[in-house]
Amino acid sequence: MAQPAFASPAAAVSSVVTEPSGATIPLSRLAPEAALRRLELTIVRRLEGFLQGDHLGLLPGPGSDSSDARVYNPGQDDVRRMDWAVTARTTIPHVRDTVADRELEVWALLDATPSMNWGTGGVTKRDLGIAAIATVGFLSQQMGDRFGGLIMRPAGLRRLPARSGRTALYGLLRSMLAEPIVPDGTKGPMDLPQGVAQMARSQRRRGLRVVVSDFLTPGDAELDPAHAPAWERSLRRLAVRNQVICVETVDRHEIDFPDVGEILIRDPESDFERYVNTSDEAARLRMNAASAAQRERIRIAIRRSGCGHIQLRTDRDWVQDIARFVLAYRRVAGRLHAPPRGVSR
């Protein structure tokens, strides 16, 4: 599909030279709400919550799914729930028990570190991530489902509380877009491993977690997939109790190194500063091969952590990419999010 039309394509391109001044995409263009109404994100993990919802819960309660049969307790159980087949076999009265249907709680972690403020395809990676959060949000708008956000800045996490309803979702997206751009070279204690760990710590209730990042560790040149990235451990812990989907935002020129002559290249996050001859064909090919290996390593690490993986590119239509993911996800989610041994679904 062709590249989506943006309000001002030049807004993001200037991020190559200097940090953007604000969001590069308006709220109204984040996701086509109406078109997404017929899609549904498969939830395979069991949930726990307060309310009656549309998803399978973890504990017994009033619901639609039969769980077990137990001995009838006169005066406490409803005779309409009598399990006659079991009663006949055992000659002891039994009732059917059901598992409660619960609401879904979604938490999205948005990486807002300076390396996300970059993009050549008309939108920065950060805004592409917000658009992905919007799309996932509209996909999980069942009755009573709550959606919360965490914005990861180098100084710390900013928490946008989880609320239900599309108005609340729009409010969340608006405050994500309005979040001030982190200036280049900002140092702070927070990075992706810590942010994911803190999300796992602070949101105890089971649910869906969306991690939006470029999954790049500043200064990391490791390409071997057998060598786990820094964030893999905390992602793995997050996936023990939650259904986790990782949204990896990539720019075209991170995969295809640009040819712009001899130029000073700066890193938005680290102190890296170096003159590089980008016209060197051999060096460019090496760089592209290394980038491909790096992306492969990220893919393998995410898969190894038991998380869903969506790769979005700033020069492609993310709605289509996510829709394609959701359709394929229906078949594989059950196996993909199988919990580790000793943890209930």
Binding site: L216, V260, I263, S270, Q294
Partner: peptide, 22 residues
């Protein structure tokens, strides 16, 4: 001087390992 104009690039960890310094 540190505040030189140049190209921002995100994946410099791999870049400095792969492309020799000019």
């Amino acid at each position: 001087r540190k505040s030189k104009q140049g190209m921002r690039y995100t994946n410099t960890g791999v870049l400095q390992a792969v492309v020799p310094p000019q």
